[in-house]
Design a protein around this nucleic acid. Structure first.
Length: 543
RNA sequence: GGCCCCAUCGUCUAGUGGCCUAGGACACCGCCCUCUCACGGCGGCGACAGGGGUUCAAAUCCCCUUGGGGUCACCA
């Protein structure tokens, strides 16, 4: 396959959705596999929705994934309006397109009428009388331009489905190619740009399957070659098989907020004062699925109802990054959704993915996005990654999590934390298990059920063990992981106790709970002074 | 609802007419390891949606049914 050119053409609506990331990845892989080019184009013809900030976020995610595009100059459709208009004027001159004057409201009424009559709404060309045209002009109406779709059979070969797609064209209608604001529609711009950029292969979501009939017809009218098409299966939510959507995170928060109000018997006013949002705003949000909290409001509610960032379903590439996934893992996992290298091979490097990728191994059935499997890929990846790569990963994680306490750690300490947490799934797990190191000694909060179980049970056996262990540690000469292990284990043997009887009280004293990295690593990392201070504070709490 | 696409364990998938008593991975369950949580090791549970054909032979080809998804914008 010589001279393959693929492209990714997102509309800038913020951070990159994983579905979009997979589309970008497949296009990138095909280009790399064939020695071709991968181009990036920004589809910003919807002026109301496109912002510079959104474009920046999109490029940030794409770069983070490592999907480098080959065009130095980004193509922005909004800057190419003159080109589209010239071509549209050409179609108008050839009568392959025409001006249509219905307002959105009128079209809406026509659709409703069709629906009531139980027939599909199909827009076909109609003649306007002189009077009508004069009336529209007097009203100051602006026309759209519609493309004449011939009523005939359409067909194209789909490399994703591996079959020819046929459409009778009975429902084909004259679709809009220029909006009243003078911008081309997606259908027009996409066809022109793909042709002008020399795109040979278009890999896109299955939701575009029917659009393809419009696009190939436009190509014929404009005299363009037809590119190769491959439509990719849709990524679905594992819970309800709905399409993976940004709203899923908001949905999760709303559900939890409702549970919280029910179980604590609190009302909206209580939630409002605790979260500092207005009751009005919360009321509106709680009662309508269509209303979403914005990114600054979400954390306020989450804190009150006890939701962590990692409890929310990751949807945007940025979400995965913030939770401590690494691009190699996300790419690997995404590649396996709707494609397979064959056989039992699953975990692959980017180089292997590039080498193995081919269109004839695309899988046509929709796939559910299984985060458990992604997480296990991450676990495996970190267990094999070099210390240097892992260190770079956690520094990137901390860069997008500026409020993390681990930002206080230097590189050597971060490397140490990664080592002692070996076996972790994602970097957010390292953070969760290590943040206690960086909390001031007098702000450690003790988990009451852990105190009962570890210290108070059996007539305060744990308290006695902790006191004894304090003395042993206070006189320890070697405060290294290994030295502490020798000291404490020797003490345990001499006093005839299992290590667990001593380690758990110590763990509770230094971190406030029953879970931490291995105890000797933890003690060594904390240091003698802080360790003893925390033990003393813990003992005074239970006294 | 019309039109279109799809269909192997709960999930991602291998399978391209005989190598299939259907393989792997995740999840789940049990045992082992163990200073906690994890990691790890060993084992287990678990699928060709249903019905008709074609063929010596069907998970694989064809048809119907059922189920799931997509799409019906001056959004992309």
């Amino acid at each position: 396959m010589p001279n393959v050119v693929t492209r990714f053409a997102p509309s800038p609506t913020g951070y990159l959705h994983v579905g979009g990331a997979r589309t970008a990845l497949f296009n990138w892989l095909l280009a790399r596999n064939t020695g071709g080019r991968f181009l990036l184009r920004i589809e910003d013809t919807d002026l109301a929705r496109s912002t510079e900030d959104a474009t920046r976020q999109l490029l940030e995610d794409l770069s983070w994934l490592g999907l480098k595009w080959d065009n130095e100059e980004l193509v922005y459709q909004s800057k190419r309006v003159d080109i589209y208009n010239k071509l549209i004027d050409g179609l108008l001159a050839k009568d392959l397109a025409y001006e249509a004057w219905e307002t959105p409201a009128e079209l809406d009424a026509m659709r409703q009428q069709a629906q009531r009559a139980k027939r599909p709404f199909i827009y076909r060309r109609r003649k306007y009388t002189e009077d009508e045209l004069k009336k529209f002009a007097d009203e100051g109406r602006k026309p759209v331009v519609r493309f004449v779709m011939p009523v005939k059979e359409y067909r194209f070969f789909d490399h994703g489905l591996g079959k020819e797609n046929v459409w009778t064209g009975r429902e084909s209608q004259d679709f809009v190619i220029r909006k009243t604001d003078g911008m081309p529609t997606y259908h027009f711009a996409v066809v022109v740009d793909d042709a002008e950029m020399g795109v040979t292969h278009i890999l896109r979501g299955l939701e575009h399957l029917l659009n393809t009939f419009n696009h190939i017809t436009l190509q014929e009218a404009l005299g363009y070659d037809r590119p190769n098409y491959a439509h990719l299966s849709v990524l679905l939510n594992p819970e309800d098989s709905s399409k993976l959507s940004k709203r899923d995170r908001d949905k999760r928060i709303r559900k939890r907020a409702q549970e919280w109000m029910r179980s604590t018997k609190k009302d909206v006013a209580a939630l409002a004062s605790a979260s500092t949002l207005t009751g009005e705003r919360l009321e509106e949000w709680l009662n309508a699925d269509t209303v979403q909290l914005d990114l600054s409001e979400q954390p306020k509610v989450m804190r009150v109802v006890g939701l962590k960032e990692t409890d929310l379903p990751e949807i945007m590439v940025h979400d995965f990054r913030k939770n401590g996934y690494v691009p190699e893992v996300l790419n690997n996992f995404l590649a396996l959704l709707g494609w397979s290298p064959g056989g039992d091979l699953e975990q692959m490097t980017m180089e292997q993915l590039v080498e193995k990728f081919s269109l004839d191994r695309l899988v046509s059935a929709n796939s559910k996005f299984n985060r458990d499997k992604l997480k296990s890929f991450s676990t495996d990846w970190f267990s094999k990654a070099s210390p240097e790569r892992s260190l770079a990963a956690i520094k990137d994680y901390l860069a997008v999590n500026p409020s993390s306490l681990l930002n206080q750690a230097n590189d050597a300490q971060l490397a140490d934390l990664l080592r002692m947490n070996a076996g972790f799934h994602i970097l957010a797990d390292v953070e969760e298990k290590s943040r206690f190191f960086f909390i001031p000694d007098d702000q450690i909060e003790y988990d009451t059920s852990a105190i009962d179980k570890v210290l108070l049970k059996n007539d305060k056996a744990g308290v006695a063990a902790l006191k004894a262990a304090r003395d042993v540690l206070a006189s320890a000469t070697d405060w290294s992981t290994h030295g502490l292990e020798t000291t404490v284990k020797t003490y345990c043997e001499q006093s005839g106790q299992g290590l667990g009887k001593v380690a758990q009280p110590l763990r509770l004293a230094i971190c406030g709970g029953a879970v931490s990295p291995p105890i000797f690593d933890s003690l060594a990392f904390l240091g003698r002074e802080k360790t003893l201070a925390r033990i003393d504070r813990c003992l005074s709490k239970v006294a």
